[in-house]
Design a protein around this nucleic acid. Sequence first.
DNA 1: ACCCTGACCTGCA
DNA 2: GTGCAGGCCAGGG
Length: 138
Amino acid sequence: MPRTPEAESFFHAVYAAIQEIPPGRVTSYAHIAKLIGTPQRPRQVGVCLKHLPDDPAQRFNSQTVPWQRVISAKGMISPRGHPSGAANQATVLRAEGVTVSTGALGEYLVDFGEFGWFPRQLPSDVEAGVELSSEEED
DNA sequence: ACCCTGACCTGCA
DNA sequence: GTGCAGGCCAGGG
């Protein structure tokens, strides 16, 4: 539970953005951060997910926010110090059609090329000179 | 291609 | 009031 109004609105924005990720797709912490206009704090996105309540009475909870669709920019499911958590996340993702492969060390990996959700070209990407791939253009 | 590092900002002890 | 640690990322060896 956020204690300051700023933190509260930040949490709200993060959860709302995550709710826009379509089923069967995944994106990164950094992308969520960019979407809500704070590209310099992907770590805080992780903090929000860590504090996502299970209580159904809360507006945002683990039932209404698809927390499983947020992974690291490397395409890896964050162990977050608790390996079984990643395993659980992999199971939930597979249940909605995402192919999750396992690395040699038991890491869980998702191919962004196939399941990544990057809906629009962000201002920061334009500034950095990033171009849309030809197959993404309408 | 890999590992290591600095930076980022908050939450918690 | 301070310090440390964290569900990360991008860049440099």
